[in-house]
């Protein structure tokens, strides 16, 4: 009950999360609190469990133990809770033979959105893909697909955004464009949890850093206090 009460004040509350693959715990009694409007970077070495944590939060994977509250509601109690979450990974989740518009329309219909065409056009314009909107996704560059992926994740106006290594495969220009987009989303008050192997470029934009190691969050601090934690500071320097 105490956990539940605490979770209402938070956007994401994770308690005692355990996930095992072949009896090996990838997440081990993990606890994490993310406040409304926070932009938290999830850092950790390869295999630390960043993707696993994000997939569990997005309801794509099932935890073996533990509980998660999203905006005070227990995850797994209703499919409608997924409407509050936008998930972006390095896999774009698009059908390659369909055009950008057709892909977005398919997702908009799955979310049973109103005013679909207006929302799709707003998404296409905000990602600068207006000229390519009627082309099959197969013809898009990696950067264009990632921008379209963000438009897909924002289509249903979620208040929580989960990013899993969104910079993978992006060139410098596309990465800078993503920096600006993330900053704008943070300023607009969305709660963001972003897993990155090399997070240095995001430190100036993000509000918090969570360090995942051995299946647990071992540090979770505001970015302004990074210098107070030498181990984490050095880890980020090395990762850069």
């Amino acid at each position: 009950m105490e956990n539940q009460a605490a979770s209402h004040a938070l956007q994401i509350a994770v308690r005692g999360l355990v996930k095992r693959y072949h009896y090996h715990p990838v997440l081990n009694q993990l606890t994490l609190d993310i406040e409304h409007g926070a932009f938290c970077i999830l850092v950790g070495s390869n295999g630390a469990g960043k993707t696993t944590l994000l997939r569990i939060l997005a309801s794509l994977s099932r935890a073996d133990e533990g509980r998660i509250w999203i905006g005070g509601m227990l995850l797994g109690t209703s499919p409608l809770l997924r409407k509050r979450i936008g998930y972006i990974s390095h896999h774009t989740m698009f059908y390659q033979d369909l055009t950008a518009i057709e892909n977005l329309r398919h997702y908009a219909r799955l979310y049973a959105l109103q005013d679909i065409d207006e929302k799709i056009q707003a998404g296409i314009q905000s990602t600068g893909l207006t000229r390519a909107q009627h082309q099959p996704v197969r013809t898009f560059s990696r950067g264009m697909q990632q921008r379209l992926s963000i438009a897909r994740a924002l289509l249903h106006d979620p208040d929580i955004l989960l990013f899993d290594e969104p910079y993978t495969g992006l060139d410098q220009e596309a990465a800078q464009s993503l920096d600006q987009k993330l900053n704008a989303l943070h300023q607009a008050g969305r709660t963001i949890l972003l897993a990155a192997h090399r997070p240095q470029r995001l430190i100036s934009i993000a509000s918090h850093v969570a360090w995942l190691n051995d299946g647990k969050i071992i540090q979770h601090i505001p970015t302004s206090r990074l210098a107070d934690i030498p181990d984490l500071y050095h880890y980020l320097q090395e990762a850069a």
């Binding site: 809770l81 998930y87 059908y95 997702y107 799955l110």
Partner: peptide, 17 residues
Amino acid sequence: LERENNAMDGLLLAPVD
């Protein structure tokens, strides 16, 4: 078709049964 680009994840994310 659903495995390509993890499109199945896109279906699973939707707020539907």
